[in-house]
Computed example of a mutant assay.
Amino acid sequence: MIDGLNYYQILDIPEDALLKEVQVAWRKFVKENHEDVVPQQERQAAKERMFRINEAYAVLSHEEKRADYDNAYMLNGGSKIELVRSRVRKAKDIMLRDRSLITREEMKLIESIIDYLDRSTQERCFAWMTDILCERPEMAKHVVTSAFDEQLLGVNSHLLDRLLEKAPYAMTWEKIYLYGEEILGIAGKENKERNYNQLARILCHRLDLAKHFVYPSFQEQASGCESCLLPTLLKLAPNEITQDHFNDYIDTVHSMRWIVYGQLRSYNEQAIAWIMKARPDLVRKPEEKPTPKELPLPLRS
Score class of each variant (00 low, 15 high):
159 L>V: 04
227 S>G: 10
204 C>N: 09
225 C>L: 01
119 R>G: 01
245 H>M: 04
31 K>A: 12
250 I>Y: 06
182 E>P: 00
274 W>M: 13
105 E>I: 05
169 Y>N: 11
217 S>R: 02
269 E>Y: 06
297 L>P: 00
237 A>S: 15
164 L>C: 06
100 S>D: 10
160 L>P: 00
225 C>A: 13
254 H>C: 07
161 D>M: 03
98 D>L: 07
58 A>K: 03
201 R>M: 08
92 K>N: 08
45 A>F: 05
284 R>L: 02
173 W>F: 08
107 M>W: 03
207 L>E: 11
41 Q>G: 03
217 S>N: 01
127 A>R: 15
288 E>G: 10
171 M>L: 11
182 E>M: 13
11 L>M: 04
261 Y>L: 05
16 D>Y: 11
42 E>M: 14
58 A>L: 03
260 V>Q: 09
136 R>N: 10
290 P>Q: 13
196 Y>M: 01
134 C>E: 15
192 K>E: 08
56 A>E: 03
240 E>K: 07
39 P>N: 05
221 Q>R: 12
267 Y>H: 14
222 A>N: 12
15 E>S: 05
133 L>T: 00
231 P>W: 02
223 S>K: 10
292 P>E: 07
212 H>M: 04
136 R>K: 14
40 Q>K: 10
138 E>C: 02
179 Y>N: 03
191 N>R: 13
174 E>F: 07
199 L>Q: 11
211 K>S: 13
255 S>R: 04
276 M>C: 05
209 L>D: 06
45 A>I: 06
278 A>D: 00
12 D>E: 13
2 I>N: 07
121 T>I: 07
159 L>A: 00
298 P>R: 12
177 Y>K: 12
262 G>W: 00
60 L>Q: 06
3 D>F: 05
130 T>F: 02
274 W>L: 14
130 T>K: 14
163 L>R: 06
225 C>I: 10
133 L>C: 05
86 S>L: 07
100 S>Q: 10
270 Q>R: 09
226 E>S: 13
234 L>P: 04
191 N>M: 10
301 S>Q: 07
256 M>R: 09
291 T>N: 05
143 V>G: 08
153 L>P: 01
49 R>D: 12
114 I>L: 15
212 H>K: 03
181 E>R: 12
21 E>R: 09
24 V>A: 11
236 L>R: 08
189 K>I: 04
44 Q>Y: 09
135 E>K: 09
273 A>R: 06
13 I>S: 02
56 A>M: 03
8 Y>D: 05
252 T>Y: 12
221 Q>P: 01
89 R>K: 12
139 M>N: 05
161 D>V: 13
163 L>V: 04
250 I>N: 04
264 L>M: 09
278 A>E: 00
5 L>E: 13
238 P>M: 02
220 E>L: 03
172 T>I: 01
223 S>D: 12
206 R>E: 08
265 R>Q: 11
101 L>Q: 15
55 E>C: 05
153 L>Q: 09
132 I>W: 04
104 R>K: 14
75 L>K: 12
151 Q>N: 06
100 S>C: 07
82 E>D: 11
246 F>G: 02
161 D>Y: 09
226 E>V: 15
25 A>S: 12
292 P>A: 11
150 E>C: 08
189 K>T: 06
128 W>V: 00
192 K>P: 02
294 E>T: 10
105 E>G: 11
228 C>G: 07
126 F>Y: 14
120 S>P: 00
285 K>R: 14
204 C>Y: 07
34 H>N: 15
9 Q>E: 15
159 L>D: 03
49 R>T: 05
22 V>F: 11
